Simulated scan of single mutants.
Amino acid sequence: MREFGLIGRTLSHSFSQTYFSQKFHNLGLSDHQYELFELAAVQDLPVLLQQHPELYGLNVTIPYKEQVWPFLDEIAPSAARVGAVNVIQFASDGRLIGHNTDMIGFRDSLQTFVPAGFDGRALVLGSGGASKAVEVALRDLGIGYWVVSRNPLGSGLTYEELTPRLVQEHLLIINTTPLGTHPNVQECPAIPYGSLTASHYLYDLIYNPRETEFMQRGQAVGAQTKNGFEMLCLQAEAAWQIWNEEPLDQ
């Protein structure tokens, strides 16, 4: 049996198990399975590995994308660029290698969302591991941005500093926080929603629910919106390539 899985603190919202289980079924891989592993702390990872010697690969989600680094033997260039790990490769020699496919998934998904040649600026809501992947993708695409966080950042903004004018001047707004994830669907980042227009593009990395409160508030004024489901699929396919030692288009 070849076992794969997802580690995180709370995984009831995750679609990864369904995604990969369906993939294994479609490929006729009856000896493959994908499990959800909720860890109370990232320090529980070594015990998990001992208990599951058939593991061939792991995905990593909130809040362990940065905390998992000390437990890895090597960091791939993709994870080094982003500063976060969302895929762990189990190398044939036993080494654990950390990768990041969130950047690939977001970059490729964003390019199907905003118009070709988009020259506006972006606001990135949140400063966690997912935010770092978004930042790298935006830099690769030549899109300027501000990071908005609850805590003061050296080169970012706090939510208190996010004025209506700044929202009007930044036509792409990306939610990388977990606010609005099922079951807390009434939550959303605290931005001046009254300044949104039909010219805005709101991208939410959340995919459960399909339409978050953040997205609905944009839709109410005619803004274009997109959730993170396509990004999930794209990053999952990139993870599958890594686990099968296939080259990635990075």
Rank of each mutant, 00 (worst) to 15 (best):
F4S: 05
G5V: 00
I7F: 00
I7S: 02
R9V: 10
T10L: 13
S16P: 07
Q17H: 02
Q17W: 04
T18K: 13
Q22S: 09
F24V: 03
H25E: 15
N26E: 15
L27G: 08
L29P: 15
S30M: 11
S30P: 13
L36N: 07
L36P: 01
E38K: 05
E38Y: 04
A40S: 12
Q43F: 06
L45I: 07
P46S: 10
L48R: 03
Q50Y: 11
E54L: 15
L58Q: 04
L58C: 09
V60K: 03
K65H: 11
V68N: 07
F71Y: 13
L72V: 07
L72N: 03
E74K: 14
E74F: 10
A76Y: 01
A76K: 06
P77D: 00
S78N: 03
A79G: 04
Q89Y: 09
F90L: 09
F90H: 14
A91R: 09
S92P: 13
R95C: 04
R95Q: 13
H99T: 06
N100V: 06
N100A: 11
S109D: 15
V114M: 10
P115T: 07
P115Y: 05
A116Y: 12
A122Q: 00
V124C: 01
G126R: 02
S127K: 04
G129V: 02
R139N: 13
G142Q: 05
G144Y: 07
G144Q: 11
Y145W: 03
V147T: 06
S155A: 12
S155G: 11
G156C: 04
T158D: 00
Y159I: 02
E160W: 02
L162T: 00
P164A: 03
I174E: 01
I174S: 02
I174R: 01
P178A: 01
P178N: 08
L179N: 08
L179C: 10
L179Y: 11
T181R: 12
H182W: 14
P183V: 10
V185P: 12
V185R: 09
V185N: 12
P189L: 02
L196A: 02
T197R: 00
T197K: 04
H200F: 01
D204K: 00
L205W: 02
P209E: 11
R210Y: 14
R210N: 13
T212L: 11
E213M: 12
F214V: 05
R217S: 04
Q219V: 10
A220G: 12
V221S: 06
Q224F: 15
Q224A: 12
E230C: 11
E230M: 10
M231N: 10
M231Q: 11
L232R: 05
C233Q: 13
L234I: 11
L234D: 11
Q235V: 08
A236I: 03
E237T: 09
W240Y: 14
I242S: 12
I242A: 14
P247E: 15
P247M: 14
D249S: 15
